[in-house]
Simulated assay, not measured.
Amino acid sequence: MNKTRINYSLIFLSIILFGILSRKISFIPLWIGDFLYAVMIYFLVRVIFPSKKFFFIILLSLFICYCIEFLQLYQSEWIVDLRKTLFGRYVLGQGFLWSDILAYTFGIAIAFITEKSFLKYYNHESRFRIKQQK
Rank of each mutant, 00 (worst) to 15 (best):
R5M: 09
N7W: 08
N7V: 13
L10P: 00
L10V: 00
L10F: 13
I11V: 15
I11Y: 08
L13G: 02
L13I: 13
L13F: 14
I15C: 03
F18V: 11
G19A: 10
R23T: 02
R23I: 00
F27T: 10
F27V: 13
P29H: 12
L30E: 07
L30T: 14
W31Q: 13
I32L: 02
I32P: 00
G33T: 10
D34Y: 03
D34P: 01
L36A: 06
Y37C: 09
A38L: 03
V39N: 02
I41Q: 06
I41N: 05
V45I: 15
R46N: 13
V47A: 13
I48S: 08
I48L: 15
P50S: 02
P50E: 01
S51V: 11
K52P: 04
K52V: 04
K53S: 12
F55E: 15
F56P: 04
L59P: 03
L60N: 04
S61V: 00
F63H: 01
I64E: 08
C65H: 05
C65R: 05
Y66T: 00
Y66R: 06
Y66S: 07
Y66W: 13
C67H: 02
E69P: 00
F70Y: 15
L71V: 01
Q72S: 01
Q72G: 04
Q72H: 10
S76C: 08
E77G: 12
W78M: 09
V80P: 00
L82C: 03
L82Y: 09
R83F: 07
K84E: 10
T85A: 02
L86D: 11
L86S: 12
F87I: 15
G88N: 05
R89C: 07
R89Q: 13
V91A: 14
L92Q: 00
G93F: 05
Q94F: 05
Q94L: 10
G95D: 07
G95V: 12
F96H: 06
S99Y: 03
D100L: 02
L102A: 15
A103W: 07
Y104E: 04
T105K: 03
F106P: 00
F106M: 12
G107N: 06
G107I: 11
G107C: 10
A111L: 03
F112M: 09
I113Y: 11
T114D: 03
T114N: 08
E115Q: 08
K116G: 01
K116C: 04
S117T: 14
F118H: 10
L119H: 09
K120L: 14
Y121S: 08
Y122C: 03
N123R: 07
N123T: 09
E125M: 11
